[in-house]
């Protein structure tokens, strides 16, 4: 039993590494041209958000259908700070994470008393509300026109080429992946799982259910917010249309297709769905339809998602 557990862990890490290597190698194989670098870096950013969502959904058992909202808060915070005050990306990312964490309290606090369908509705509404505010609060966000980021510099070093941002994005993704993979083996990770699996037993084991749920929301949103800051640095431009329902659902689908409560699965899911949405983007609606069909199929036939490639006998939670 012990040896099989170790074996399966190793296999899952192999899949995760495969996903990362493919994503990192893609622009290299294309000879470091700008567009492939951009696509790969964008994958890294989206995968960070997907991992943050899995921390919330897979690990602590709370649903979010509005993660693009946290992503947007981080992106706008960093973009506006850069555009107006020429703030460093590191500071921008911290500010973005902080703003997203603050925003998560708005949904996280009621979430302590809500579950399942209700939480789905509330988080969906949150995502839409953030996008709408971004669109309409023109004095701050320029509305439809978006915010243009100034020169990007990280800790004083100017990131002049897409290659730099690409490198920064993958380092950040690696850090988030390590955090997500280690979380289950920490006290906090166990508290998340305890609250997910049995609130009654969790409380009996001295875990404050409400505080743990809010903590999960705050951590998840902070990561998504930091990813948003990177996104602003990557695209150099932030506009409301990047943060709609469909973006939230894409993040959600990455976790579900990959398999909840699995870092490797989520990375793989992010890679597959990002590839689908890039590949099918030229035909309006095709990528959305494909991803929709994919998650219906996963829910019906393989509730464990892609992680069932290496883990057997687990349902989705």
């Amino acid at each position: 039993m012990v040896s099989s557990a170790v074996l399966s862990f190793a296999r899952s890490e192999r899949f995760a590494l495969l996903a990362l290597v493919l994503a990192i190698a893609f622009p290299i194989a294309c000879g470091f041209r700008t567009y492939p670098l951009f696509i790969a870096a964008q994958f890294a950013v989206f995968a960070m958000v997907a991992l943050s969502l899995d921390v919330l959904m897979g690990r602590s058992g709370q649903i979010s259908l509005g993660h693009a909202g946290f992503f947007a808060l981080g992106a706008y915070a960093a973009a506006i700070l850069s555009a107006r005050f020429d703030v460093d990306l590191l500071a921008g990312a911290i500010a973005g994470a902080a703003l997203a964490a603050l925003g998560s309290l708005i949904v996280g606090l009621p979430a302590t008393r809500l579950s399942g369908h209700y939480l789905g509705i509330v988080t969906l509404g949150f995502g839409v509300a953030v996008a709408q505010i971004a669109l309409k609060w023109t004095a701050l966000t320029n509305g439809d026109e978006g915010v243009h980021v100034r020169t990007i510099h990280l800790a004083g070093i100017v990131l002049s080429s897409p290659l730099h941002v690409y490198a920064v994005a993958f380092v950040a993704l690696a850090a988030v992946a390590v955090f997500a993979a280690r979380l289950p083996r920490t006290r906090l990770g166990r508290a998340f799982a305890a609250v997910r699996d049995s609130e009654i037993a969790a409380a009996a084991m001295g875990i404050s259910v409400a505080r743990t749920k809010v903590t999960a929301f705050v951590i998840s949103a902070a990561i998504a917010g930091a990813a948003g800051a990177l996104y602003a640095a990557l695209t150099g431009f932030v506009a409301p249309e990047d943060f709609g329902i469909s973006q939230s659902l894409l993040f959600f689908a990455m976790v579900v297709v990959g398999g909840t409560a699995s870092t490797a699965g989520t990375l793989l899911g992010a890679l597959v769905l990002d590839a689908v949405s890039q590949g099918a983007a030229t035909v309006g609606g095709l990528s959305v339809a494909l991803i929709g069909a994919a998650i219906v199929a996963v829910a019906l036939f393989r509730p464990a998602g892609l992680k069932s490639l290496w883990r057997r006998g687990e349902g989705s939670r």
């Binding site: 469909s246 959600f252 689908a253 609606g285 095709l286 069909a293 998650i295 829910a299």
Partner: peptide, 20 residues
């Protein structure tokens, strides 16, 4: 969660198909 996933999947599928 599985039920939510299914109806969200249908949402995306139908929206996508209408767009196509």
């Amino acid at each position: 969660l599985t039920q939510i996933v299914v109806t969200l999947g249908l949402l995306m599928l139908l929206t996508g198909l209408v767009g196509i």
